[in-house]
Design a protein around this nucleic acid. Sequence first.
DNA 1: CCCACATGAGACATTCATGTCTCACACTGG
DNA 2: CCAGTGTGAGACATGAATGTCTCATGTGGG
Lengths: 190, 190
Amino acid sequence: MSHVGYRRLMAVDPEQVLRSAAALLTRKSTATMDEVARAAGISRATLHRHFAGRDALVKALEELGIAECEAALDAARTDDGPAADAVRRLVRGIEPAAALLAFLHTENQLFEGEEQNAGWARIDAGLTDLFRRGQESGEFRIDLTPAWLTEALYGLLGAGAWAVAAGRVARNDFNHMIVELLLGGALRRE
Amino acid sequence: MSHVGYRRLMAVDPEQVLRSAAALLTRKSTATMDEVARAAGISRATLHRHFAGRDALVKALEELGIAECEAALDAARTDDGPAADAVRRLVRGIEPAAALLAFLHTENQLFEGEEQNAGWARIDAGLTDLFRRGQESGEFRIDLTPAWLTEALYGLLGAGAWAVAAGRVARNDFNHMIVELLLGGALRRE
DNA sequence: CCCACATGAGACATTCATGTCTCACACTGG
DNA sequence: CCAGTGTGAGACATGAATGTCTCATGTGGG
């Protein structure tokens, strides 16, 4: 494993820092760099060594979110089989990034960078295409637009991450709650 | 109309200020008081005359949100008739406050005040009771917990408000998109 | 055993939002 | 026409967060 040589000593894992930062910033977006550091269990100095400043932190957060979304999108093979199954695979694969998404989806103040914008556009397109494919195959209803289903998925992922963090939903139920509500809704099927 | 006498001169409408503030803070929660003022079309000085500071602004935002939610909850008569119909009435009535909710639901850093907390608890209880009633009457499926349906409703309202603001969903479709997805889901009913 | 390296703690200057103030202007009503 | 009132613009001091630095510690590898 080259990882052993990579993170020598008790070096901080930047990705772990980003995850805790996302969890904190989601519920308190005005958090201080010091608070972010404490939440990650490191000092402000170390946080600053890894991320030059708040802007750099948010940018890294966004890059990680984009990367994980694209990875989940690829892994879900959204072009294969029934669209509903693809949605289930997608939600399952995107679960670890839910907290990240919850933050990034709300804080859309970042619409400045070019590459980020392109990244999100690609992800949005992938999701929208999936829902459209489901409509064209007759699986999904056509009165709910693909664009709305995409936004709704973001919203539900965020709500799910929040509900889990608040202890209102069991972590193991995360997938079921989101997928079932998104696909089947709250009404009983007769 | 007593309104004419109420807002004498070109006086600022505090509620209008709060709404634009909510719209701005939802997508950029680190916005400056100056940015909030500009977004409301007033000067920073005037903003400060109406709301002593950022804390006071957020508090007023929260009070307005609670008041509108409770009003919508009462107006929806959540104890009358089929639960699904009550949900439809509720979403319709809560639409004007969606942007406000989108902000308040994410920024849960405010869990300090006593009365606010009680207000939200009452609203949560009202929603949870409605979903539970729907389950007990056999309308709603029982594998989606009332707590999750409540959180999901918040999430969908926020996503809907954002989608409308971004032009991805027509304002007239707001109710339909949210209610139909929440109740019926994305799958076609055979 | 010793060196290399990452971290934590703290000091420091700087930037920036904030809160408060004053003054000039515009509009409204008498 | 004039007084009253709310507003915009700007100056100003304050405080907090930020960015940068140094130094001590501690651990892991050679």
